[in-house]
């Protein structure tokens, strides 16, 4: 990266987090350039969710700094949070609200006026194919619909930086393609997106930048082409993370016993 005049959309330096005995994140440094579509990949339990939680103000880091467009998140949380769109993973929503109420709630909480919230809520629900279920309680939504309505909540205030934890999990292929289009056009318009995912193929096609995280460390980061070199992202990922077993594993499985 050449020295850019603008500060990066997200700069994480020396981030640490420990839960009891377990060190979930051990000195993570990440630089997400403005206008990039950034993929965060890693095996289960690598520290992706913990890193994203600390980068969005949901979890206080033990050490380290999070700069969003040059501003220190943990020094001035309210100001920085206003520019972030967040989709965390593994948390509940206020699911006794209807879909429309939930998106409205997110919009109002972020200080939008009533008309803007109403228009954008209708737009978002239509785009995510939830218009028919706008008046259904979110608790009665399917997993994929819940993901989509949460994404709508993350977008309603038109944030400058989007941090999405597993946005495609449980989402059907058509909706996933729609979401990809929305995110791509958002990036084209100058926004920055960070997504975490297990699906290497998706990240390779979608993201222009990527970071590989395992056991709380960043193993590689840069443009997707830099990181993967001549191999596919999946092969490169396996090479970096290790843990592939081919010889002698479950040999008995080959001999069917019928």
């Amino acid at each position: 990266m050449s020295a850019a005049p603008d500060p990066p959309a997200l700069q994480i330096t020396g981030l640490w987090k420990r839960f009891g005995e377990k060190i979930a994140v051990a000195g993570v440094d990440l630089t997400v350039p403005t206008g990039s579509f950034y993929g965060l990949v890693g095996p289960n339990g690598a520290g992706k969710t913990t890193t994203l939680s600390m980068a969005t103000g949901l979890l206080r880091p033990d050490f380290g700094q999070v700069l969003v467009r040059g501003q220190d998140l943990w020094a001035d949380p309210l100001r920085v949070k206003a520019t972030l769109g967040v989709l965390p993973d593994g948390v509940r929503l206020f699911d006794r609200l209807t879909g429309a109420q939930l998106v409205t709630y997110s919009g109002l909480l972020r200080g939008l006026d009533r008309d803007t919230v109403r228009d954008r809520t209708a737009d978002l629900l239509r785009t995510f194919d939830l218009a028919d279920d706008a008046d259904t309680l979110v608790v009665d939504y399917s997993a994929g619909m819940t993901k989509k309505v949460a994404l709508a909540c993350a977008l309603v205030h038109a944030p400058r930086v989007l941090l999405l934890d597993e946005p495609f999990e449980a989402v059907d292929p058509v909706s996933a393609a729609n979401i990809r289009d929305i995110l791509s056009s958002y990036v084209a318009g100058g926004g920055t997106v960070v997504v975490s995912s297990h699906v290497m193929d998706l990240v390779q096609r979608m993201c222009d930048h990527v970071a590989v995280i395992a056991q709380g460390h960043v193993l590689a980061q840069g443009t997707t082409d830099e990181v993967r070199g001549s191999a596919t992202l999946e092969d490169r990922f396996v090479e970096l993370v290790g843990g592939r077993r081919t010889e002698g594993a479950l040999s008995w499985l080959r001999t069917s016993s019928d």
Partner: peptide, 27 residues
């Protein structure tokens, strides 16, 4: 699943963050 049309309390509170919290809690 039950349907609840309209925005309920969200239409009846001031369109501010505090108002939104009130509406959510009342709901």
């Amino acid at each position: 699943s039950a349907s609840h049309s309209g925005l309920g309390f969200f239409d009846r509170v001031p369109a501010t963050p505090t108002g939104a919290v009130v509406a959510r809690c009342l709901t």
